[in-house]
Design a protein around this nucleic acid. Structure first.
Lengths: 109, 109
DNA sequence: AATAACACTTACAAAAAAGTAAGTACTTTC
DNA sequence: GAAAGTACTTACTTTTTTGTAAGTGTTATT
């Protein structure tokens, strides 16, 4: 009785589960250079609703890509930033971005 | 009156539009080494319905990632394979796979 | 004292993606 | 000549994802 090992197909789909959907890549893109607060993210991505932003942040947090940092300062601030583990996904983002750029140029011609 | 240039956020989302969804990465993974016929793909991915397989193949074709080749042999055969342009997406697939593999190990521990 | 900002939460609705189940037209094998 | 394979197509339903719109409790500003 031997268990099947996961294959490449499983691996690519796993990544899509973490990065997929309409907003996650967008959020990560804005977060990758510096931590951002909830309201800053909302301003960076005006089309996202607060509900969606919240939901996607929570999921990225559960997947340990980002961390939520509450600063109990006078006006309470909540900052989201890449976790150490989360930064391992940046080498995925970069080729994704590069290809998208080429593809955009291609379809606009 | 100046038009805004697309940014990195637009680029990553463009790629997701082409690769996103439940099946496309899976299909491309099976296609990347050798051309496959419709029925071969269906056998490789038993869970996909014929409708979904057809739909996703058509979309990948429209995005010019794959090509559809009808061989007018005695039993008519239709082969799907990466286009030359389509192969430019393989450097995206590879990091996607690598990260997924690491992540799977991580969440299973 | 009213208004606004912050970081959310909730109930509900609409839209998009995926699945079900059947059928088509043709060919080959038993 | 019945059954099975190939490459699809269609109508319809279910599920998943996303959006709408309002509200909460706290603090800061005018």
């Amino acid at each position: 009785m031997q268990l099947e090992q996961p294959t490449g197909t499983v691996f690519v789909q796993t990544t899509l589960k973490v990065l997929g959907g309409k907003w996650k890549l967008l959020i990560l893109w804005y977060l990758k250079d510096e931590p951002k607060r909830f309201s800053e993210l909302k301003r960076s991505i005006p089309d996202i609703t607060e509900k969606m932003l919240m939901q996607q942040l929570r999921e990225l947090e559960k997947d340990e890509i980002i961390v939520r940092n509450v600063r109990s300062t006078v006006p309470l601030k909540v900052e989201y930033s890449f976790s150490d583990y989360g930064t391992t996904i940046i080498p995925v983002l970069t080729p994704l971005c590069d290809w998208g750029k080429e593809h955009l140029q291609r379809i606009n011609s």
